[in-house]
Simulated assay, not measured.
Amino acid sequence: MLTLSNTYLTVLINPQGAEITSVKDNASHLEYMWQANPVYWGRHAPILFPIVGRLQDNQYRVNGQTYHLTQHGFARDNEFRLWSRTPTSVTLRYASDDQSREKYPFDFALTVKYELVDHQLRVNFTVDNPSDAELPFSLGAHPGFNVPLGDIFNQFTDYQVTVAPKKIYQRVPLVGPYSDTGHPVPLDLTQPLPLDHELFAHDAQVLSLDNHETTVMLGTARDEHGVALTVKAPYLGIWSPYPKQAPFVCLEPWWGLADDVNATGDLTTKVAINHLPAHQQFAAGYQVTYF
């Protein structure tokens, strides 16, 4: 386990999946991150690559060949190599190999840098395409945050999600595990969205952000503790497992989507897929402020 620490926060990163496993306030010892109780969900903050969500029948085609990939891809289950490290930052890297090419026949290097700055953890991703061919991929983050935070007398329903800018967003509905991009639904976020487990009865709330900088705050009026995630991405998922009464919520920046309900299976035409030209680099990231 790798440790980042400053005056305010201590962060633990597991090289397996390059996953954030803990963010604690140094003064109060408050744990912000979900602690992966398998009764509800056995992960903390997986990185989603080379797909986000699920493929129809867990398979896709490239150049007439069929490949199999399970939900959210395989990066989260692989060891990342330590690339560089300081007391307040760490960079980890995972590159294609023979094993990855059996599921995903492309060369790539996925790098994630975590940097602790005051009360904020900054997360930056790069995807490099070292080959002479185009690289189709999706990328996402899936951090889970404890709800309630701090006060043991608080309830899940005492919390709310506040989105800035305040406006009516388009929500991508899910039909089973698949995106129904042809039938977006307006979601009024001019006011805070109260949390309730029923909110996730049809899986995640998926917001279209159109790559505009957006801040999503998770908190309660009952105390001062919460998190604020800022990102510039095409989509953001808000999720807690249903019908489980799980004591956490994930705020998930996505550069990709689950297969559309009308998907053909061709990876190159998959909904929201990124097309990285030969020998080019894709960069993205997000920041979480803990309070």
Score class of each variant (00 low, 15 high):
residue 215 T to Q: 14
residue 277 P to S: 11
residue 261 V to A: 13
residue 239 W to H: 08
residue 257 L to V: 10
residue 225 H to W: 04
residue 244 K to N: 10
residue 274 N to M: 03
residue 218 L to C: 03
residue 229 L to P: 07
residue 214 T to V: 08
residue 247 P to V: 10
residue 266 D to C: 12
residue 215 T to F: 08
residue 238 I to V: 13
residue 258 A to F: 02
residue 226 G to T: 02
residue 280 Q to V: 02
residue 213 E to I: 14
residue 215 T to N: 13
residue 270 K to W: 09
residue 271 V to T: 15
residue 213 E to N: 04
residue 278 A to R: 01
residue 265 G to I: 12
residue 222 R to A: 11
residue 256 G to M: 11
residue 251 L to M: 04
residue 283 A to M: 09
residue 213 E to A: 11
residue 230 T to Q: 10
residue 241 P to Y: 13
residue 239 W to M: 08
residue 260 D to P: 01
residue 263 A to V: 10
residue 273 I to F: 01
residue 257 L to Q: 09
residue 269 T to M: 08
residue 220 T to W: 03
residue 242 Y to G: 04
residue 253 P to N: 09
residue 234 P to M: 09
residue 222 R to M: 08
residue 232 K to P: 11
residue 279 H to Q: 12
residue 251 L to Y: 02
residue 238 I to S: 06
residue 236 L to Q: 07
residue 274 N to Y: 01
residue 261 V to E: 13
residue 246 A to M: 11
residue 217 M to S: 14
residue 268 T to H: 14
residue 250 C to K: 00
residue 236 L to Y: 09
residue 232 K to V: 13
residue 238 I to D: 10
residue 268 T to N: 15
residue 241 P to G: 15
residue 226 G to M: 02
residue 274 N to P: 00
residue 271 V to M: 09
residue 269 T to R: 13
residue 228 A to C: 07
residue 238 I to Q: 07
residue 224 E to P: 00
residue 244 K to D: 11
residue 230 T to V: 06
residue 265 G to C: 11
residue 222 R to T: 03
residue 220 T to G: 06
residue 223 D to R: 00
